[in-house]
Design a protein around this nucleic acid. Sequence first.
DNA 1: GCGTAACCGAGACGGTACGTCCCGTCTTGAT
DNA 2: ATCAAGACGGGACGTACCGTCTCGGTTACGC
Lengths: 189, 189, 189, 189
Amino acid sequence: MQATLQATTEILEERGFAALTIEEVANRAGVGKATVYRWWSSKGTLAFDAFGARFLERHPLPDTGSLEGDLLAALRSWITVVDGTTTGRVLTGLLAEVQRDPELADEWRQRFVGVVRTQQMIMIERAIARSEISADCDSNVVLDLLYGPAYHRLLHSHLPLTDEFARHVVDIIVRGLTVGDVGTHEELS
Amino acid sequence: MQATLQATTEILEERGFAALTIEEVANRAGVGKATVYRWWSSKGTLAFDAFGARFLERHPLPDTGSLEGDLLAALRSWITVVDGTTTGRVLTGLLAEVQRDPELADEWRQRFVGVVRTQQMIMIERAIARSEISADCDSNVVLDLLYGPAYHRLLHSHLPLTDEFARHVVDIIVRGLTVGDVGTHEELS
Amino acid sequence: MQATLQATTEILEERGFAALTIEEVANRAGVGKATVYRWWSSKGTLAFDAFGARFLERHPLPDTGSLEGDLLAALRSWITVVDGTTTGRVLTGLLAEVQRDPELADEWRQRFVGVVRTQQMIMIERAIARSEISADCDSNVVLDLLYGPAYHRLLHSHLPLTDEFARHVVDIIVRGLTVGDVGTHEELS
Amino acid sequence: MQATLQATTEILEERGFAALTIEEVANRAGVGKATVYRWWSSKGTLAFDAFGARFLERHPLPDTGSLEGDLLAALRSWITVVDGTTTGRVLTGLLAEVQRDPELADEWRQRFVGVVRTQQMIMIERAIARSEISADCDSNVVLDLLYGPAYHRLLHSHLPLTDEFARHVVDIIVRGLTVGDVGTHEELS
DNA sequence: GCGTAACCGAGACGGTACGTCCCGTCTTGAT
DNA sequence: ATCAAGACGGGACGTACCGTCTCGGTTACGC
């Protein structure tokens, strides 16, 4: 079980998610295929477990004292972990797999997206506590605005994940959140 | 060739990208497998061609006269085309495939991402022309901020693509872009 | 152990020897696989034990007073037990298994073939005692001539095990054995 | 296809039918497993084809001029081909397989048993033509009496296939057939 | 009457082969 | 001459059992 995850990690780092094969994992781990299937229902869940915690460890919650500082630190940290790294390729591979396996999608939402967002949400809550932003700000939308563009570039690779990009993104979000106590979007149709 | 695309479209709509096989396409189209390979190098490019133009047709460039109106119209249109539809599932399937096939990734960037963004960029340019926003605004970042969160929710399905979501996203972006000329948020702290 | 044999018998009767697995026997008997292996070294020996005595009980030694009567009664009894019955299918299944498992082959010879033949041999000995046939007649060959053709038809199923078949076989054997003392067939040519 | 049969023959000769594996055949022949399955529906039919003609070639129809001579020559030839040889072990392996695979059983009857018997029947017909034996003699029973005991010893291996055995068997059969123009088995109940 | 050992069910384990599905390439026969 | 039809070598799939091996829980025995 440990050996299986170890073998999985190795293959993921050597050749990426697409080349991951239950057969090879079993061989490398010196384990029967049936044993792998007994513990993981698909190569998606296996890869997810091998990938798992590692990501969260490497992408901790920042605490700089200001919303802008936090968001920027978080985004920079994410980019560092993900851009041009094995982790990044595994992440995109997993995200791809999630699109074709609904069962994995559940796991993904609960054990990855949920965990990351619950943690990162604290940044927004702290900003509200500090009265930097309005209390009725939708923190989910803020997180989507922060990470959405980053995933967008990672997945489409139409443009690089530069530090400038990070600064721009954070800048616009923070301005958008902190400017207006007057006027709401409800005016829009 | 027409029959091949037709068959591809049918399968995509019936059972999604993951269930698409060249073998079945050829059988359904009454065409030899070799003939399919002669025209498309992978099932990714085939699906892309079958999916292709349809998306652009259904997601036209809006022109409401204001940046906020344009962005909101664009995002709403995207959500309509993609949320809970076959098109949406094909889009996520293709995006997944793009992660594992670098050759397809090139095609994707050039023939999909590039085309959409070139078109949508016009919204930003018009806003600059109208002096709604600063001329040195990075229009690429704006598009990432607009579509990134949407793709984010589509791919992770952690939260629904509601109209409220669209309004919030656009509201924050527009505020973030338009406030800047009167000062910076640092003053608020 | 009783339960194991019971379960084995059930499976043999329901689905035949080929479908017999230790795994299912253990499950049905509510017994651990290891326990089955503790008592039987292979599914061959297990099936043999479950099949075992039953055959001999159902195929007793006849005593009609004449060689011809005995042989015919024996052959008819064998056919009745074996033709179109579950017992017959188990017998052929076991005989098949014996071909691939030399260890089982030993058991088979000692505990089945040996027992049956020792018993049936008595028919020949009685015929010799009655002076129906010569004392230097090879009783082993006689038994092979009696049961060989029967097994032949059972295993190849090229022709049915009719009563006419039994009568012909016995007739030829008996004639072949009893004519000898008055001369040889060469005189007839 | 030729390579497949070649590989099959090799494995059969090296390690016997029980050790025959489609997987290994495919590997040795440098052929996809699917290709093997495309031509042979089971390892039984495959082994049968590889075994096939060879047996008939090696076991020709004798023609000595007398029934006794023919039967003895045939039986001796069979014993030579089969006793202690690879061919013999393949034959018993196949016969075992025939017991568990009804589809193979059909093939076996039509393409092996049928062919051999049709050929060997000629011996009996010639004896009838020569008036050695009665015309209403059941030639099927004669063949069963000739080969039945031989298969019996081969499969149960309770006794060796000696030449003495062959002579005894043939002797009894021939006497049984040629003695009596008087008295018929119908007298029996 | 209470430890303690033997037993045994349950089933996980490392393996092997199964038969199937597609892959992308190559051959063939009919139009 | 083109192309549908589909055979081909290949590789991974997920499953079924093999025979071995821990695990606990339950008896039943000796103290």
